[in-house]
Amino acid sequence: MNTTRSEGDASLLEVQHVRKVYSSGGTEFEAIRDLDFRVSDGEFLCIVGPSGAGKTTLLRCIGGLLDVTSGSVSLAGARVTSPPEGMAIVFQEYGRSLFPWLTVRQNVELPLREKKVPATRRAELVSDALEAVGLAHVPDSYPWQLSGGMQQRVAIARAVAYQPRILLMDEPFAAVDAQTRAELEDLVFSLWKSLQVTVVFVTHDIDEAIYLGQRVLVLSNSPTSVLEDVPIPLPKARDQLRTRSLPEFNELRQKIHRLVQTAKRTMIT
Protein backbone atom coordinates (compact mmCIF):
# COMPACT_ATOMS: atom_id res chain seq x y z
CA MET A 1 0.00 0.00 0.00
CA ASN A 2 1.51 3.29 -1.00
CA THR A 3 -1.17 5.64 0.28
CA THR A 4 -1.35 6.36 3.98
CA ARG A 5 -4.66 5.73 5.66
CA SER A 6 -6.63 8.93 6.05
CA GLU A 7 -8.59 10.07 9.09
CA GLY A 8 -11.70 8.26 10.37
CA ASP A 9 -14.63 9.52 8.34
CA ALA A 10 -13.04 10.15 4.97
CA SER A 11 -14.94 8.15 2.38
CA LEU A 12 -12.87 5.71 0.40
CA LEU A 13 -15.56 4.61 -2.03
CA GLU A 14 -18.15 6.93 -3.50
CA VAL A 15 -21.04 5.62 -5.55
CA GLN A 16 -22.84 8.58 -7.10
CA HIS A 17 -26.20 8.23 -8.81
CA VAL A 18 -25.20 5.05 -10.56
CA ARG A 19 -27.59 3.75 -13.18
CA LYS A 20 -27.06 0.61 -15.19
CA VAL A 21 -29.09 -0.39 -18.22
CA TYR A 22 -28.33 -3.58 -20.10
CA SER A 23 -29.24 -3.42 -23.72
CA SER A 24 -29.10 -6.35 -26.08
CA GLY A 25 -30.56 -6.15 -29.53
CA GLY A 26 -33.57 -3.86 -29.31
CA THR A 27 -34.54 -4.61 -25.69
CA GLU A 28 -33.35 -2.65 -22.69
CA PHE A 29 -33.27 -3.82 -19.11
CA GLU A 30 -32.79 -1.34 -16.31
CA ALA A 31 -30.93 -3.25 -13.62
CA ILE A 32 -30.00 -0.30 -11.42
CA ARG A 33 -32.09 2.86 -11.29
CA ASP A 34 -30.23 5.12 -8.93
CA LEU A 35 -27.70 4.13 -6.30
CA ASP A 36 -25.97 6.69 -4.17
CA PHE A 37 -23.85 5.88 -1.13
CA ARG A 38 -20.42 6.26 0.41
CA VAL A 39 -18.16 3.81 2.20
CA SER A 40 -15.70 5.14 4.78
CA ASP A 41 -12.12 4.02 4.94
CA GLY A 42 -11.92 0.92 7.13
CA GLU A 43 -15.65 0.33 7.17
CA PHE A 44 -17.46 -3.02 6.85
CA LEU A 45 -20.54 -2.44 4.70
CA CYS A 46 -23.04 -5.15 3.92
CA ILE A 47 -25.48 -4.91 1.03
CA VAL A 48 -28.67 -6.98 1.16
CA GLY A 49 -31.65 -7.13 -1.12
CA PRO A 50 -34.10 -9.60 -2.63
CA SER A 51 -32.68 -11.95 -5.22
CA GLY A 52 -32.50 -10.34 -8.61
CA ALA A 53 -31.99 -6.92 -7.02
CA GLY A 54 -28.91 -6.25 -9.08
CA LYS A 55 -26.51 -6.79 -6.17
CA THR A 56 -24.01 -8.58 -8.35
CA THR A 57 -24.34 -5.94 -11.07
CA LEU A 58 -23.61 -3.26 -8.48
CA LEU A 59 -20.53 -5.07 -7.22
CA ARG A 60 -19.20 -5.48 -10.75
CA CYS A 61 -19.76 -1.77 -11.38
CA ILE A 62 -17.85 -0.90 -8.20
CA GLY A 63 -15.10 -3.31 -9.19
CA GLY A 64 -14.68 -1.71 -12.61
CA LEU A 65 -15.68 -4.93 -14.38
CA LEU A 66 -18.84 -3.34 -15.79
CA ASP A 67 -19.33 0.17 -17.14
CA VAL A 68 -22.05 2.26 -15.54
CA THR A 69 -24.68 3.78 -17.82
CA SER A 70 -24.66 7.06 -15.91
CA GLY A 71 -23.38 8.32 -12.58
CA SER A 72 -19.94 7.45 -11.27
CA VAL A 73 -17.94 5.24 -8.96
CA SER A 74 -14.80 6.67 -7.35
CA LEU A 75 -12.22 4.91 -5.24
CA ALA A 76 -9.97 7.17 -3.13
CA GLY A 77 -10.99 10.12 -5.28
CA ALA A 78 -10.15 8.49 -8.60
CA ARG A 79 -12.93 7.53 -10.96
CA VAL A 80 -13.29 3.79 -11.54
CA THR A 81 -13.49 2.81 -15.21
CA SER A 82 -11.54 -0.43 -15.08
CA PRO A 83 -10.44 -2.60 -12.13
CA PRO A 84 -8.55 -0.16 -9.91
CA GLU A 85 -5.35 -0.71 -7.98
CA GLY A 86 -5.67 -1.83 -4.38
CA MET A 87 -8.91 -3.73 -4.85
CA ALA A 88 -9.61 -7.45 -4.63
CA ILE A 89 -12.82 -9.34 -5.34
CA VAL A 90 -13.93 -12.65 -3.82
CA PHE A 91 -16.55 -14.30 -6.00
CA GLN A 92 -19.30 -16.68 -5.00
CA GLU A 93 -18.12 -19.26 -7.53
CA TYR A 94 -14.79 -20.13 -5.88
CA GLY A 95 -14.46 -23.24 -8.02
CA ARG A 96 -14.40 -21.15 -11.17
CA SER A 97 -12.44 -18.24 -9.75
CA LEU A 98 -9.45 -20.40 -8.78
CA PHE A 99 -7.27 -21.77 -11.56
CA PRO A 100 -7.41 -25.59 -11.48
CA TRP A 101 -4.03 -25.98 -13.19
CA LEU A 102 -2.25 -24.11 -10.39
CA THR A 103 -1.60 -25.30 -6.84
CA VAL A 104 -2.99 -23.41 -3.86
CA ARG A 105 0.32 -21.58 -3.42
CA GLN A 106 0.56 -20.68 -7.12
CA ASN A 107 -3.03 -19.41 -7.14
CA VAL A 108 -2.32 -17.07 -4.24
CA GLU A 109 1.01 -16.01 -5.70
CA LEU A 110 -0.06 -15.22 -9.27
CA PRO A 111 -1.55 -11.73 -8.63
CA LEU A 112 1.57 -10.83 -6.63
CA ARG A 113 3.79 -11.84 -9.53
CA GLU A 114 1.69 -9.61 -11.76
CA LYS A 115 2.11 -6.79 -9.21
CA LYS A 116 5.89 -7.35 -9.50
CA VAL A 117 6.35 -8.08 -5.81
CA PRO A 118 9.92 -9.40 -5.31
CA ALA A 119 10.21 -13.17 -4.81
CA THR A 120 11.20 -13.21 -1.13
CA ARG A 121 8.43 -10.79 -0.16
CA ARG A 122 6.03 -12.80 -2.29
CA ALA A 123 6.82 -16.03 -0.47
CA GLU A 124 6.30 -14.21 2.84
CA LEU A 125 2.94 -12.75 1.82
CA VAL A 126 1.71 -16.08 0.47
CA SER A 127 2.62 -18.07 3.57
CA ASP A 128 1.23 -15.37 5.88
CA ALA A 129 -2.05 -15.30 3.95
CA LEU A 130 -2.36 -19.09 3.95
CA GLU A 131 -1.59 -19.10 7.65
CA ALA A 132 -4.25 -16.44 8.26
CA VAL A 133 -6.99 -18.49 6.58
CA GLY A 134 -5.86 -21.74 8.21
CA LEU A 135 -4.49 -23.40 5.08
CA ALA A 136 -0.76 -23.41 5.86
CA HIS A 137 -0.76 -27.21 5.57
CA VAL A 138 -1.92 -27.57 1.95
CA PRO A 139 0.12 -25.15 -0.19
CA ASP A 140 0.95 -27.80 -2.78
CA SER A 141 -2.52 -29.26 -3.17
CA TYR A 142 -4.67 -28.35 -6.12
CA PRO A 143 -7.88 -26.42 -5.37
CA TRP A 144 -10.05 -29.25 -6.64
CA GLN A 145 -8.56 -31.61 -4.08
CA LEU A 146 -10.02 -29.42 -1.31
CA SER A 147 -13.54 -29.06 0.06
CA GLY A 148 -15.72 -26.10 -0.99
CA GLY A 149 -15.08 -24.19 2.23
CA MET A 150 -11.34 -24.67 1.89
CA GLN A 151 -11.45 -23.53 -1.73
CA GLN A 152 -13.16 -20.32 -0.69
CA ARG A 153 -10.43 -19.91 1.96
CA VAL A 154 -7.87 -20.10 -0.85
CA ALA A 155 -9.71 -17.35 -2.73
CA ILE A 156 -9.76 -15.25 0.46
CA ALA A 157 -6.05 -15.90 1.02
CA ARG A 158 -5.37 -14.75 -2.54
CA ALA A 159 -7.24 -11.50 -1.83
CA VAL A 160 -5.49 -11.00 1.55
CA ALA A 161 -2.00 -11.61 0.13
CA TYR A 162 -2.73 -8.95 -2.50
CA GLN A 163 -3.02 -6.39 0.34
CA PRO A 164 -6.00 -4.50 -1.04
CA ARG A 165 -7.37 -1.29 0.43
CA ILE A 166 -10.83 -2.49 -0.37
CA LEU A 167 -12.18 -6.01 -0.51
CA LEU A 168 -15.37 -6.72 -2.48
CA MET A 169 -17.18 -9.94 -1.67
CA ASP A 170 -20.03 -11.19 -3.86
CA GLU A 171 -22.20 -13.61 -1.85
CA PRO A 172 -19.01 -15.47 -1.00
CA PHE A 173 -20.58 -18.07 1.28
CA ALA A 174 -23.80 -18.78 -0.61
CA ALA A 175 -22.47 -22.10 -1.88
CA VAL A 176 -21.08 -23.62 1.34
CA ASP A 177 -22.84 -25.49 4.16
CA ALA A 178 -24.08 -23.70 7.30
CA GLN A 179 -21.26 -24.91 9.56
CA THR A 180 -18.53 -23.81 7.16
CA ARG A 181 -20.38 -20.61 6.54
CA ALA A 182 -20.25 -19.61 10.22
CA GLU A 183 -16.52 -20.38 10.33
CA LEU A 184 -15.86 -18.32 7.21
CA GLU A 185 -17.91 -15.40 8.55
CA ASP A 186 -15.77 -15.33 11.67
CA LEU A 187 -12.65 -15.61 9.52
CA VAL A 188 -13.63 -12.62 7.39
CA PHE A 189 -14.60 -10.61 10.44
CA SER A 190 -11.29 -11.25 12.20
CA LEU A 191 -9.34 -10.50 9.01
CA TRP A 192 -11.19 -7.21 8.68
CA LYS A 193 -10.29 -6.31 12.26
CA SER A 194 -6.64 -7.29 11.99
CA LEU A 195 -5.95 -5.94 8.48
CA GLN A 196 -8.03 -2.76 8.77
CA VAL A 197 -9.20 -3.26 5.22
CA THR A 198 -12.45 -1.77 3.89
CA VAL A 199 -15.01 -4.46 3.06
CA VAL A 200 -18.08 -4.30 0.84
CA PHE A 201 -19.97 -7.54 1.37
CA VAL A 202 -22.95 -8.46 -0.81
CA THR A 203 -25.31 -11.12 0.54
CA HIS A 204 -28.95 -12.18 0.42
CA ASP A 205 -28.71 -13.47 3.99
CA ILE A 206 -30.05 -10.84 6.43
CA ASP A 207 -28.52 -12.48 9.52
CA GLU A 208 -25.14 -12.63 7.88
CA ALA A 209 -25.35 -8.96 6.93
CA ILE A 210 -26.22 -7.88 10.50
CA TYR A 211 -23.63 -10.19 12.03
CA LEU A 212 -20.79 -8.86 9.88
CA GLY A 213 -21.63 -5.28 8.95
CA GLN A 214 -21.22 -1.99 10.71
CA ARG A 215 -23.87 -0.76 8.34
CA VAL A 216 -26.37 -2.58 6.16
CA LEU A 217 -27.59 -1.13 2.90
CA VAL A 218 -31.01 -2.53 1.96
CA LEU A 219 -31.67 -2.51 -1.77
CA SER A 220 -35.05 -2.42 -3.48
CA ASN A 221 -36.22 -4.80 -6.13
CA SER A 222 -34.93 -4.23 -9.66
CA PRO A 223 -34.62 -1.51 -11.00
CA THR A 224 -32.57 -1.01 -7.88
CA SER A 225 -32.27 1.91 -5.52
CA VAL A 226 -31.33 2.17 -1.84
CA LEU A 227 -34.35 1.48 0.37
CA GLU A 228 -32.64 2.18 3.64
CA ASP A 229 -29.23 2.59 5.19
CA VAL A 230 -29.32 0.76 8.54
CA PRO A 231 -26.51 1.33 11.05
CA ILE A 232 -25.64 -1.75 13.14
CA PRO A 233 -24.81 -0.61 16.68
CA LEU A 234 -23.67 -4.02 17.90
CA PRO A 235 -20.52 -4.47 20.04
CA LYS A 236 -17.45 -4.93 17.87
CA ALA A 237 -16.62 -8.32 19.36
CA ARG A 238 -18.80 -10.86 17.54
CA ASP A 239 -19.67 -14.35 18.62
CA GLN A 240 -21.84 -16.66 16.57
CA LEU A 241 -24.06 -17.63 19.54
CA ARG A 242 -23.99 -14.60 21.78
CA THR A 243 -24.22 -11.89 19.12
CA ARG A 244 -27.01 -13.63 17.28
CA SER A 245 -29.08 -14.01 20.48
CA LEU A 246 -28.83 -10.33 21.49
CA PRO A 247 -32.23 -8.58 21.59
CA GLU A 248 -30.79 -5.79 19.40
CA PHE A 249 -29.80 -8.38 16.82
CA ASN A 250 -33.32 -9.68 16.75
CA GLU A 251 -34.82 -6.21 16.36
CA LEU A 252 -32.49 -5.43 13.48
CA ARG A 253 -33.30 -8.73 11.84
CA GLN A 254 -37.04 -8.02 12.02
CA LYS A 255 -36.60 -4.50 10.72
CA ILE A 256 -34.48 -5.51 7.75
CA HIS A 257 -36.62 -8.54 7.06
CA ARG A 258 -39.69 -6.28 6.80
CA LEU A 259 -37.81 -3.94 4.48
CA VAL A 260 -36.76 -6.78 2.18
CA GLN A 261 -40.31 -8.15 2.16
CA THR A 262 -41.65 -4.74 1.14
CA ALA A 263 -38.95 -4.53 -1.49
CA LYS A 264 -40.07 -7.87 -2.91
CA ARG A 265 -43.70 -6.82 -3.07
CA THR A 266 -43.42 -3.31 -4.43
CA MET A 267 -42.25 -3.06 -7.94
CA ILE A 268 -40.99 0.46 -8.34
CA THR A 269 -41.75 1.76 -11.79
Partner: peptide, 26 residues
Protein backbone atom coordinates in the same frame (compact mmCIF):
# COMPACT_ATOMS: atom_id res chain seq x y z
CA UNK B 1 -12.39 -19.37 -20.88
CA UNK B 2 -14.67 -19.25 -17.83
CA UNK B 3 -16.24 -15.78 -17.42
CA UNK B 4 -15.59 -15.82 -13.65
CA UNK B 5 -11.94 -16.79 -14.19
CA UNK B 6 -11.70 -13.98 -16.75
CA UNK B 7 -13.18 -11.48 -14.27
CA UNK B 8 -10.80 -12.72 -11.60
CA UNK B 9 -7.86 -12.10 -13.91
CA UNK B 10 -9.19 -8.66 -14.81
CA UNK B 11 -9.87 -7.68 -11.20
CA UNK B 12 -6.24 -8.51 -10.32
CA UNK B 13 -5.20 -6.35 -13.26
CA UNK B 14 -3.48 -9.09 -15.26
CA UNK B 15 -1.93 -7.64 -18.39
CA UNK B 16 -3.22 -9.04 -21.72
CA UNK B 17 -0.09 -11.15 -22.19
CA UNK B 18 -0.38 -12.58 -18.67
CA UNK B 19 -4.03 -13.40 -19.31
CA UNK B 20 -3.02 -15.18 -22.49
CA UNK B 21 -0.28 -17.15 -20.74
CA UNK B 22 -1.85 -17.89 -17.37
CA UNK B 23 -5.52 -18.19 -18.28
CA UNK B 24 -6.27 -18.59 -22.00
CA UNK B 25 -3.46 -21.04 -22.78
CA UNK B 26 -4.18 -23.45 -19.87
Amino acid sequence: VDPIARETARSYRFRPLTQLRSLVWP
